[in-house]
Design a protein around this nucleic acid. Structure first.
Lengths: 167, 167
DNA sequence: TTGAATTTTCAAAATATTCTGAAAGTTTTC
DNA sequence: GAAAACTTTCAGAATATTTTGAAAATTCAA
């Protein structure tokens, strides 16, 4: 079974790659599994497929929802909760960008602002220190803006391209 | 001592922020310490300042050099190696962008290309799978390009601004 | 050369993170 | 309202990462 192998490899590799950039392996694997699954899956199916515990599945599904990468789905006639990945990868990427902005850049901006306020004196040493703080603030702000800009540009480009199909 | 406190807070916070985005705390703290230090420091001074072991200092200095964020400096008449951070934060940020591109995006691109090759059959299931793989490839490629573009644009903007000072 | 100064390595210890599984909590059905 | 079906929580276990410190390797001056 050729395709099954490729899918497994995808899921496995995705998990490994994720750890490289500070994301939990299991979370990535669940995300990959849902991305590849044509139908939405429930906790038991995920446990079974990835051979992990219920608690682990539950916790990581919660995390993935907080990233806006998967949705909970309630199927009629079913007690269990089913989960589905955002299949539009571009949308998912924008979501990741938005969250990383919020989780990584915002704290830097806040902290630098805070530290700036803390230093009151006007010695040359303080000025030198504040230069570093200000520069980091500026760089983080630039990154934040650029990411926002690119995300929005990409979105409207996609939208306009899509809209043209109906003209 | 007001300034010392602020510096310590900066170093400490920088370390904590770093762990949030998958970077080793000590590595970030050493980087912060060197960023704030007017003169370059040797291993003993860093050990002393951050209260960490020699092996730890050595390993993280090596890592920071591989990121291109600090330089080794050989002072005349000194046996010890001294280390200095890249003080131009914009340059450092570009360096981080370049490395993250290489370490995070390149592996995704490579893996997706590889997996594409692996799937030979033409069933609808395979097609569906390949669509996901292709989409991820496209998104990663877009991010890679954009990051490169923004970095270069930012660099030349700075350069041209700087050059104007001499006109 | 030699040996003192310094850097690097790496096995073991410490710490941090992730995972498990069973108990507690919730929701739905009858 | 009670029991069944399911989800959530969380303390302890397992795993992974980071750190230590002493030994090995390297460098350099004499």
């Amino acid at each position: 079974m050729e395709l099954k192998e490729a899918k497994d490899r995808f899921i496995h590799t995705w998990g490994t790659l994720a750890t490289q950039w500070g994301i939990n392996r299991t979370m990535s694997q669940i995300h990959a599994l849902l991305l590849l699954s044509p139908k939405s899956l429930n906790a038991d199916e995920i446990m079974d497929e990835l051979q992990i515990s219920r608690g682990n599945v539950n916790m990581n599904l919660r995390d993935l929802m907080s990233w806006g990468l998967i949705y909970k789905q309630l199927l009629p006639g079913e007690r269990k909760e089913y989960f589905q990945a955002e299949k539009d990868i571009w949308k998912a990427a924008r979501q990741i960008g938005r969250e990383r902005r919020r989780r990584e850049l915002s704290p830097i901006l806040e902290t630098m602002e805070d530290i700036k306020k803390q230093v009151k004196d006007t010695s040359p040493e303080s000025a030198e220190f504040l230069k570093v703080v200000n520069d980091i603030y500026a760089v983080a702000g630039f990154a934040d803006n650029t990411l926002d800009l690119v995300t929005k540009a990409e979105e409207s480009w996609l939208t306009s391209t899509f809209m043209k199909l109906f003209k």
